[in-house]
Amino acid sequence: MSDVVSPRQVAAGLDEYWSPRVVAELDDSFVKVAKVQGTLAWHSHEYEDELFYILKGSLTIEMEDRKVVLNEGDAFVVPKGARHNPIANDECHIMLIERKSTLHTGNEITEKTRSLAEQLRPIGQ
Rank of each mutant, 00 (worst) to 15 (best):
M1Y: 09
M1L: 06
S2G: 15
D3A: 08
V4T: 09
V4K: 06
V4A: 12
V5A: 11
V5H: 06
S6H: 11
S6D: 15
R8W: 14
A12R: 09
A12I: 05
G13D: 04
G13N: 12
D15N: 13
E16F: 08
E16Q: 04
E16M: 08
E16N: 00
W18E: 02
S19W: 01
P20D: 02
R21H: 11
V22H: 02
V23F: 02
A24G: 14
E25F: 06
E25P: 04
L26G: 08
D28C: 01
D28Q: 11
K32R: 13
A34I: 12
A34E: 15
A34T: 14
V36S: 06
V36M: 13
V36G: 04
L40I: 05
L40G: 07
L40E: 06
L40H: 13
A41C: 13
A41Y: 03
A41G: 11
H45I: 11
E46P: 04
Y47H: 07
Y47N: 09
E48L: 00
L51E: 05
F52D: 00
F52G: 01
Y53H: 11
K56L: 03
L59G: 02
T60S: 09
I61T: 05
E64K: 15
E64V: 14
E64A: 00
V69F: 14
L70T: 07
L70I: 04
N71Y: 14
N71F: 12
E72M: 07
E72Y: 08
A75C: 10
F76M: 09
P79S: 12
P79V: 03
K80S: 10
K80C: 04
A82P: 00
H84L: 04
N85Y: 06
P86M: 08
I87D: 05
N89D: 13
N89Q: 13
C92V: 14
H93M: 07
M95S: 10
L96R: 03
I97M: 13
E98F: 00
R99H: 13
R99T: 11
K100Q: 12
K100F: 10
L103Q: 13
H104M: 07
T105F: 09
T105I: 08
G106D: 00
G106F: 10
G106M: 07
E111N: 14
K112T: 11
T113A: 10
R114Q: 14
R114W: 02
S115A: 06
L116K: 14
E118W: 10
E118R: 14
E118Q: 15
L120T: 00
L120N: 01
L120K: 05
R121E: 05
P122W: 05
P122G: 05
I123D: 03
Q125L: 15
Q125N: 15
